[in-house]
Design a protein around this nucleic acid. Structure first.
Length: 444
RNA sequence: GUGGCUGUAGCUCAGUUGGUUAGAGCACUGGUUUGUGGUACCAGGGGUCGCGGGUUCAAGUCCCGUUAGCCACCCCA
């Protein structure tokens, strides 16, 4: 019986595993550089957790089943609900701000296609307990630095920055209530991939005859790319009283955010683009998406503020902002730009062994080096020198340790720098001591 | 969930109007004197031609179904 991998799932042969870990390592390294703490959560959760957050429709997109105890459960499609529960349970005792990150696999029962599988890894980064824009800025900085850590620059990706609060103010100025605004936001979210006529039709359910003009006003806003224009536009809205104050305060938050981003060196990546609203209803303030600057413009990461979600999921009232980045589109992008390093699992040393006595010597030295944590390989069976040198070159090892009868007679080992072909003979009892210098500067 | 394209060795592919035992390159294994840079030479393993059915004396080849992959929709936490 031949079994095949389930659709949308991947197997990670060593090379693929090394690529995956390369991505994980960079993510983790950058998160730690910002002093985010790593946490983890269960892969299997009560189905209710997701229905509560996203509604009954979500079930069709989950891997869900009934366990032996009769519980309705689901593989997690995302981490945020679990995280909200973790936070909620300990919110009162956690030192704020809470800065946490996770790297984990998520599962969605969808049709696999380019950049989208049924099992994929996500880098989740969140801050809880800080309502001000400095938290949003911290996350966006982390996001840009994480992408830069792979060698991507401002020609490769941008972060589109938008603000649902600003939209709510603009829509309030249009006379829309909360429900109407929510409808309009979901239409704006689909704007890019919908025909204009279709959009007008959808908008007319809210704006009636005015839909055409309304859409023109929306397009005008979405076209704004610089902050001064945005500020002027917002401050000139026909808002009064409390709403006018909110607009001023909001512009103040924008100023803080942009100043912070600029000071931290992330300014060149930021693109103001109110066309981003994120489909999800739970986002409450700044929202952002990192996307490929050239080509397709696929989303690499997305996030924003979700101040009400923890409470909705049964926790305390605590502000939150976060983003998630997937491994699939990122790996596609890195492949396309030849930024995925090769040869990532290779030994530091590989022994070349002449015969039985030489093998004893090699095994002894290898054992010592391995005990110190050096990566050492040797051939498991006897074969000719020619073959062994070839294998050594192909292994990607930095050094060959050559154990031949001549060297052994002198209680020495010949070390060959496989990078440049230079060789040096080292007394075996000095090998361990000289290894750090060898690894540092090779053989001249 | 809908539609289009594609499935021959681990990979990239060839395979004549349907015709004998399905091939090549790369990769892999072993060897060519047991001492030096990815070489060369020899040999070998590996395929129920995605799967099932049909047409035919005969199917990798034609037809139908199915499944998987890719792409575009839908959706995208």
């Amino acid at each position: 019986m031949q079994f095949e991998t389930l659709p949308g799932f991947r197997e990670f042969y060593p090379e693929a595993c090394a690529r995956r870990n390369h991505i994980f390592n960079r993510w983790r390294h950058v998160a730690r550089a910002f002093n985010f703490l790593e946490y983890d959560a269960p892969v299997l959760e009560p189905l209710e957790l997701y229905i509560e957050k996203s509604g009954q429709e979500i079930v069709g997109q989950l891997f869900n089943f009934e366990d032996r105890g009769g519980r309705a459960v689901a593989l997690r499609p995302e981490l945020t609900p679990s995280l909200a529960r973790l936070i909620g349970a300990k919110a009162n005792s956690l030192k704020r701000p809470v800065k946490w990150f996770n790297i984990g696999e998520n599962y969605r029962y969808e049709r696999p296609q380019k950049g989208r599988l049924r099992a994929f890894y996500q880098f989740n980064v969140d801050i809880f307990g800080e309502p001000g824009p400095s938290a949003d800025a911290e996350l966006i900085c982390l996001l840009t630095q994480a992408l830069q850590a792979f060698g991507l620059g401002s020609n490769d990706f941008k972060v589109r920055l938008s603000d649902r609060d600003l939209w709510l103010l603009m829509l309030a100025a249009e006379g829309l209530d909360e429900a109407g605004s929510a409808t309009v936001l979901s239409i704006i979210d689909k704007l890019e991939r919908t025909e204009r006529a279709k959009t007008v039709e959808r908008l007319s359910s809210v704006m009636g005859e005015d839909a055409e003009d309304f859409l023109s006003r929306i397009e005008e806003v979405i076209a704004i790319r610089d902050f001064e224009t945005l500020r002027a536009y917002i401050l000139n809205l026909p808002l009064e009283g409390d709403l006018a104050d909110q607009a001023k305060a909001r512009i103040g938050n924008w100023e803080k955010l942009l100043r912070h981003l600029k000071a931290a060196g992330a300014g060149e990546f930021i693109q103001i683009d109110l066309g981003i609203v994120r489909g999800l209803a739970y986002y409450t303030g700044f929202v952002f998406e990192a996307f490929e600057a050239s080509g397709e413009g696929r989303a690499l990461a997305g996030g924003g503020r979700y101040d009400a979600l923890v409470q909705k999921l049964g926790g305390p009232d605590i502000p939150a902002v976060g983003f998630a980045m997937g491994d699939v589109t990122l790996a596609d992008l890195l492949d396309g730009k030849s930024l995925m390093p090769a040869y990532m699992q290779r030994p530091e040393f590989i022994a070349i062994i002449g015969g039985a006595d030489e093998r004893d010597a090699a095994l002894g030295d290898a054992a010592q080096l391995r005990a110190l944590g050096y990566q050492v390989e040797y051939p498991l069976k006897d074969s000719g020198f020619g073959k062994q040198f070839k294998a050594a070159n192909q292994s990607g090892a930095r050094f060959a340790l050559i154990y031949g009868s001549e060297e052994l007679e002198r209680s020495a080992v010949k070390v060959r720098d496989l990078g440049n072909g230079n060789e040096a003979e080292i007394p075996r009892d000095q090998l361990i001591r000289q290894v750090p210098a060898l690894l540092e500067s090779g053989i001249e």
